[in-house]
């Protein structure tokens, strides 16, 4: 299937949706961050696939996916740091217990 685009796009969509579900439903903050990583990876797959088989194939897609991976890593790091700081305050890593920013 290397010549056809749609399988890769579909796979990307599936991964994205799985990640979205995990991000919205899981209670452990780490798992939420992980699900967000999964979403970003799904997007990456789209980028790389388009770079090979898109309208104007070039390396731009791959370069861009490098950037995406970088951003994902940075975000994961900061997210874990935040979680550790929160954990120090209230010894829980349950996302549904972090609800004080409301009216």
């Amino acid at each position: 299937m290397s010549g056809i685009l749609s399988p890769y796009l579909t796979l990307g969509a599936i991964l994205f949706c799985i990640g979205l579900f995990g991000a919205l439903t899981k209670r452990n903050a780490i798992i939420v961050l992980l699900s967000i990583e999964l979403m970003l990876n799904g997007v990456n797959l789209n980028l790389v696939a388009f770079s090979k088989m898109g309208v104007a194939p070039s390396l731009t897609g791959q370069v861009f996916s490098l950037f995406t991976i970088t951003v994902a890593a940075a975000e994961a790091a900061v997210g874990v740091a935040l979680l550790i700081a929160l954990y120090r305050n209230k010894p829980t890593s349950d996302v549904s217990e972090m609800d004080e920013l409301k009216h």
């Binding site: 290397s2 790389v48 696939a49 770079s51 991976i69």
Partner: peptide, 16 residues
């Protein structure tokens, strides 16, 4: 790798 993006593959393994 099958898509011919070797560098990205390696970066993915390393980082993700």
């Amino acid at each position: 790798l099958t898509l011919g993006a070797g560098f990205v593959a390696i970066v993915q393994v390393l980082i993700s």
